[in-house]
Nucleic acid binder design. Structure first.
Lengths: 233, 233
DNA sequence: CCGACTCTGTCAACTTGCCGACATTCTTCC
DNA sequence: GGAAGAATGTCGGCAAGTTGACAGAGTCGG
């Protein structure tokens, strides 16, 4: 990918939209390109930080795993997202595993260069602080959901979040979650069994709020799901 | 409190230990002092951010609350801790409620002044980024505990954390958690009922790993608790 | 030292969600 | 079009934790 194309890709990302063109240019100049095959491991929990990653195409799955094979799906990044900043800023090991879902293209801004740029351009700091704050708020919300909401409301909340990130509005106004999303995967997001997800999704479908399809979900009445979340809170 | 005393108080805090004296002085110059009576509300979730807080004496309890009165005890700060930085950096409302436990003295660094100082001294940024990263890692660990560990291991993990923060080593080598800590409060930390906490604590005591006292806990064998956490992970 | 209050232990009935098993249905790839 | 594999629906037994109730024990202030 040529430098102007890189510049374009970075400037288009939600995270760097407000950044002046000059700084985008400087970031682009630091970036290396990287390719990952489907399922390839980008980094694992405990690894030393190599740099900051930006996703150009494909998907990256962030998860926590136990020795006995259970795993928790923490995040699913799509093109335009940036991640891996935590280890960059505190110098400690990676907090999670990162794995490609489908063949993926990434940008890597290596650690040392990134810190040099930050030192030269402290204007960048508030920017990345907002990035950290956003993840913190997301974590807090998640913790509260687990603490306060019953499983059904948590599922509804998760569906709405997915619709926010991956939703495609259909002709009839309903929102299709444009993801290959088996119920087992949904279960891994909520740390709940496949069977429980299945039962609950069917209950939601019976009420006409969603429609189930093989490996995907269509949300017909987002307001009803929101009410379910709020009502339980 | 006089300015040199403030300077001293800030420099002594775990968070600002590495900060050069000059910057500590500049922070101290911005600080206002504030007193809170036992149980007084410092700020509530949803409030606009007034500033960054440092605790001089007493305790501050950070929690999330539902309309129907359940609450989740997220954090318990002690003298030397600083908090309230998230809303400062992203400009969004407070994420939690903060309430004094016992009469408390606080420092407030007002928002506008703080940002002026940051702009003048960007060296401060990496410092606060580490602060955010630390809270993020804590959140992640918590989420994983909830997802992966059974209640007993989560309780053990929480006790060890409390021992870390509030522990006083006794003559016989065991560690007393120097907090008024009713089992109900422990339950609110883990979002688990008082009865369950009671049963589990008694099981731990039966194994000789802890000793229960009225409103407090003594940890006799930290290693055993650690093994319990690790074994379940 | 006594009464009020807080904290703890315990029980039974109930709810939620897990797990294993098995049958069905849908998709994909030859 | 026909496997093979992936995803889903469903059931019953089981484990963990909740809720409400009540009794007993510890602490504190007058």
């Amino acid at each position: 990918m040529s430098t102007p194309e890189l510049h374009q890709a970075i400037a288009a990302s939600e995270w760097f939209r407000e950044l002046p063109a000059e700084l985008v240019g400087q970031l682009a100049a630091l970036a290396q390109q990287r390719h990952l095959a489907d399922g390839a491991l980008l980094f694992a929990k405990g690894d030393a930080a190599d740099g900051l990653y930006g996703l150009l195409s494909g998907r990256v799955r962030i998860s926590a795993t136990t020795r006995d094979g259970r795993d928790l799906l923490v995040n699913l990044f799509e093109p335009g997202d940036w991640f891996g900043e935590i280890s960059m800023f505190d110098g400690l090991p990676r907090t999670h595993d990162a794995r490609a879902v489908g063949a993926s293209e990434l940008l890597l801004i290596p650690r040392a260069r990134f810190h040099a740029l930050l030192a030269a351009q402290p204007v960048l700091y508030p920017h990345f602080m907002r990035m950290l704050c956003r993840k913190l708020r997301r974590s807090f919300a998640w913790i509260e959901y687990i603490a306060f909401l019953p499983m059904s409301a948590r599922l509804a909340a998760r569906l709405l979040e997915l619709a926010q990130d991956y939703g495609e509005t259909q002709a009839d106004g309903s929102v299709l979650i444009a993801l290959h999303l088996p119920q087992e995967e949904l279960g891994r997001m909520l740390s709940v069994s496949r069977q429980t997800v299945s039962k609950e999704l069917n209950a939601l479908e019976a009420r006409g709020w969603i429609r189930l399809d093989y490996g995907r979900v269509l949300i017909r009445q987002p307001e009803a799901l929101e009410a379910l979340v709020r009502g339980a809170a």
